[in-house]
Simulated assay, not measured.
Amino acid sequence: MRTDIDNWKPLSVSSIVNVFSKMPITWCIAGGWALDLHVGRNSREHSDIDVLITRKELLIAYQWIQKDWTLYKAEDGKLLHWVDGEFLKSTRDVWVSRNHVAPWAFQIMIIDSKDGNWIYRREKSIKRAMNEIILKSPDGIPYLKPEIQLLYKAGSSKIREKDFQDLQTMLPILSTQEKEWLTLSLKKQFPDGHTWIEYL
């Protein structure tokens, strides 16, 4: 088990591409970097970097990554070594470093899917076709669509200052359709209202 959650030296986006681009899986950049890829510039500093993959392809990714990296599953507030062949039924995050003491290099966010659809775990009635949740940068880097990434940020139990900063950065460039989808999704998850809705 590791407890050094602040011990980060994140890979660059281009290095992440080098790690994942040859894998026979669907993947994309997530988190704040996904929003910056959409904006086309670095809007703020990033202390980590997230990659999104599906649970169905998790073991495939493991076989590729474990050759050069050490993987830890985040469960119940603990970071436990993920061993070969172990299928993670409910784990949502995997942290990755070069070895057992090296700084964290990237984080894998695990999503569930069914019948070709992404399923939002906090409100399972919110779904999108898998081929509709990812965009590509001009350089061909896959990243999570901004309205979906913002839903993950807004739907968290704790909205951080950087999450609201990301919303402010994205508002001027979100399309009407993206704003409408995010608003509808927030209303589904939060029927009593959400503070971000007034900004949308």
Rank of each mutant, 00 (worst) to 15 (best):
R128E: 12
T26C: 09
A34W: 02
R2M: 07
A34G: 06
F20V: 05
I159S: 08
S43Y: 06
I110N: 01
F20N: 01
P138C: 06
L186Y: 06
D36I: 09
G140Y: 12
V19C: 13
W104N: 02
I5V: 15
V101M: 14
S175N: 08
M130S: 09
K145D: 11
L59D: 09
L35F: 02
V96S: 00
L37C: 01
Y143N: 00
V83Q: 15
Q177F: 07
R122T: 05
G193I: 10
S43G: 09
K89R: 12
K153Y: 06
K179Q: 09
D84L: 07
L144A: 08
E178H: 13
H38N: 06
Y152G: 06
W33M: 05
V19Y: 10
A105I: 05
E198G: 11
L186N: 07
D115G: 12
I29A: 04
D68K: 14
G31Y: 03
K187L: 10
L200A: 09
E161A: 14
K188F: 04
W8Q: 09
H38W: 07
A34R: 00
R44N: 03
V51E: 05
T54F: 09
I16N: 02
I173R: 08
G193V: 10
T54H: 08
I111W: 00
K78L: 12
A74H: 14
E86I: 11
E123D: 13
T54Y: 10
P103G: 02
S157I: 13
L200G: 11
P138K: 12
S185Q: 04
K56C: 05
Y143L: 04
F164P: 04
H38Y: 14
K89G: 03
K114E: 14
M170N: 06
R2V: 05
K89N: 10
L58E: 05
I110W: 01
V39Y: 07
F190G: 04
L200H: 00
I65Y: 03
L184T: 15
L167N: 02
F106N: 00
L37W: 04
T176R: 13
K153C: 06
S12W: 11
P24M: 11
D192I: 06
K114W: 01
D163S: 11
G77W: 11
G140Q: 13
E180C: 06
L150G: 02
D139S: 15
R160G: 00
W118N: 01
S47A: 15
T54K: 08
L150N: 03
P142R: 02
S175P: 05
L58V: 04
I197P: 00
L11S: 08
T54A: 03
E45S: 11
D139M: 09
A30E: 06
K188N: 12
C28I: 04
K124P: 07
I173N: 05
K127N: 01
F87P: 04
V101K: 14
D115E: 15
L184E: 15
V19A: 08
L71H: 00
H46Q: 08
V17R: 06
V94R: 01
A30C: 13
D112S: 15
I53N: 01
K158V: 14
G116D: 01
P138T: 10
G32E: 02
L182F: 10
H46M: 08
S185W: 08
D4S: 11
